Simulated scan of single mutants.
Amino acid sequence: MITYPENGTMKFFTCSTQQRYTSTKMATAVEIKAIMRIADAVCFDVDSTVIKEEGIDELAKFCGVGDAVAEMTQNAMGGNISFKTALTERLALIQPSRDQVNRLIIDQPPCLTEGMMDLVDRLQQRNVQVFLISGGFHSIVEHVAARINIPLNNVYANKLKFHLNGDYAGFDETQPTAESGGKGRVIGLLKKERGFKKVVMIGDGATDLEACPPADAFIGFGGNIIRQQIKEKAKWFVTSCQEITAELEQ
């Protein structure tokens, strides 16, 4: 939230401070845009935000169980069930092997959202640290990160486990992104360990919205899919990367 005291000095309050200050007034779009322009770190969701697809849905299609998994994904993104439950159930149905994951990346590489590379470039030119925080899989997300020049130590995602023969063996349940609230925990860790003062979260789903706080602002993204819950609750909701890029030039 931004306030303008009598002396005209503009002051910024984080989402958590704002919640203590008032339980009724939420940050406006104007305030979020102002925070975006002074942010020292911006965190992006990946599926349906940085890329056009939902990575787990594409993997499910590749493994022949696309329809069933897509319905589970919709429920998870809408916040209808816990993320960890949805992830466990979807992976149990897909049972992806190491070979299938690798072939998916080669045969059907993720498609970047229009304008995303330019947005990331603009942020980095402003010395803003860019992070990918995803409930998807590290092996896929790191491929996306390489394409948009984000270092691997700025990637937080779930990790699949495989048996020695390459068969699916589960996922690393200790990763913060494996659970609801995990993206917020990553942002809290980034603030603590890297000293960021203003962090913005951008994404299309419930797990992104709930990351504010500790993120100082949330931007709802509807450039690939519009989730009604996010459109209604996000104080700044955009349908293209260009809308965010334009604000950086103000």
Results as ranks from 00 to 15, higher is better:
Phe83Pro: 00
Glu114Cys: 11
Ala76Tyr: 01
Thr24His: 15
Met72Arg: 14
His138Pro: 00
Val46Ala: 04
Arg20Asp: 11
Val141Ser: 04
Arg20Leu: 12
Cys111Phe: 09
Val101His: 01
Ile56His: 02
Cys63Phe: 01
His143Cys: 01
Asp45His: 04
Lys52Gln: 15
Ala29Trp: 08
Leu91Trp: 10
Thr14Trp: 05
Arg37Cys: 12
Ile81His: 08
Gly135Trp: 01
Ser139Ile: 03
Val42Ser: 08
Ala27Ile: 05
Leu93Ser: 10
Thr49Trp: 08
Val69Lys: 12
Lys25Ile: 01
Ser23Arg: 14
Ala92Pro: 00
Leu119Gln: 07
Phe137Gln: 04
Ala92Glu: 10
Asp107Phe: 00
Lys11Ser: 04
Thr24Gln: 15
Arg103Ala: 11
Pro110Asn: 11
Glu31Tyr: 07
Glu71Leu: 13
Lys33Asp: 04
Gln74Asp: 13
Val69Met: 14
Arg90Asn: 09
Lys33Ile: 07
Thr113Arg: 02
Ile32Gly: 10
Ala92Val: 01
Val144Phe: 08
Ser16Asn: 11
Leu87Glu: 02
Glu89Met: 08
Gln19Glu: 11
Pro109Met: 03
Pro96Met: 12
Ala86Val: 04
Ser97Ala: 10
Asn80Gln: 15
Arg126Val: 14
Arg37Ile: 05
Glu31Leu: 06
Asp47Ile: 01
Thr28Gly: 09
Val128Tyr: 09
Thr14Leu: 08
Phe13Trp: 05
Gln95Asn: 10
Thr28Tyr: 02
Phe13His: 06
Ala34Asp: 11
Glu142Pro: 00
Arg37Gln: 14
Val30Met: 12
Phe62Ala: 10
Ser23Leu: 12
Tyr21His: 13
Val46Thr: 04
Arg90Pro: 01
Glu53Ile: 00
Val50Phe: 06
Phe83Leu: 11
Ile38Gly: 07
Asp45Met: 02
Leu119Ser: 06
Ala34Phe: 11
Gln19Pro: 02
Asn80Pro: 08
Arg126Ile: 13
Glu71Trp: 06
Ala39Lys: 07
Gln125Trp: 05
Gly66Asn: 11
Ala70Met: 13
Ser48Thr: 14
Ile133Leu: 07
Glu53His: 04
Ile35Lys: 04
Ser82Phe: 07
Tyr21Gly: 09
Lys61Asp: 14
Gly78Leu: 13
Thr88Ala: 11
Ile56Glu: 06
Asp67Gln: 14
Ile81Glu: 12
Arg90Lys: 07
Glu54Lys: 01
Asp45Asn: 05
Phe44Leu: 08
Val69Ala: 13
Arg20Lys: 15
Ile81Leu: 12
